[in-house]
Amino acid sequence: MRRLATPVGVMALVIGAFGYVGAVDPNEPGHYPVCPLLRFTGLYCPGCGGLRSAHAVAHGDVAAALGSNALAVVGYGIFAVLWVAWMSHAARGRPMSITAKPVVWWGIGVLLLTFSVVRNLPFGSALAP
């Protein structure tokens, strides 16, 4: 049981965060701070709409979550898969190590930058929150 404490604790924190965002609606102004990039430049960052997306996921509305921030929804899915793998490794007593080559990190950076640029252009308005 001790081996499972860390992944279970991380999931408890994630569930608590989603529970809080599910209870305190980010669509109502004044509950959460405004994105600094959006406030000062009027541009959407890759995380803009992420809280609204988490709120929609917490309420089971995947379509609204995708509309708020599709990349965040993909991130939630990746987290879920990695968490299951982590639990599987922990249950077997094997440490889990995620190593990625620099090209993967560069690819993630390019994906985030591309997502940010496209969602701020007129033809990418469907990706805007």
Rank of each mutant, 00 (worst) to 15 (best):
A100I: 07
S68F: 02
A63L: 13
L13Q: 04
M1L: 08
L113I: 15
A56I: 02
R52V: 04
V34L: 14
V81T: 06
A128V: 05
V110K: 04
G47H: 07
G109E: 13
V84P: 00
V14I: 15
P33I: 05
D25I: 10
L66M: 15
W106S: 12
L121K: 10
V117T: 12
K101I: 11
S88Y: 13
L111I: 14
S88T: 15
T41M: 08
L113Q: 07
A70S: 12
P7D: 10
L127Y: 07
A126K: 04
G77D: 05
S53Q: 03
A100T: 13
Y76Q: 05
H31D: 04
G75T: 01
R94P: 00
G93E: 09
V84W: 07
F123G: 05
V24T: 15
V57G: 00
V57R: 00
P95M: 13
W106K: 08
A12I: 09
Y76V: 14
W86N: 08
D25V: 09
V110R: 06
L111W: 09
S116K: 02
F123I: 05
N69K: 07
Y44F: 13
A5L: 15
R39D: 12
R52L: 01
R94F: 08
A56W: 00
P95C: 11
I15D: 06
G75D: 03
V10H: 04
G107L: 02
P29V: 08
G50L: 06
C48L: 04
A90V: 06
L13E: 02
L71N: 06
L82E: 14
V62D: 01
G75R: 01
N69D: 10
G19Y: 07
A100Q: 11
H59L: 03
I108R: 05
C48S: 05
A70L: 14
D25M: 10
I98Q: 09
V118N: 03
F79S: 09
T41Y: 05
V84K: 03
A80T: 14
W106I: 15
F115R: 05
A65K: 03
G124D: 02
W83Q: 15
M96P: 00
V110E: 01
V104M: 09
P102I: 06
A85H: 10
S53P: 02
S53V: 04
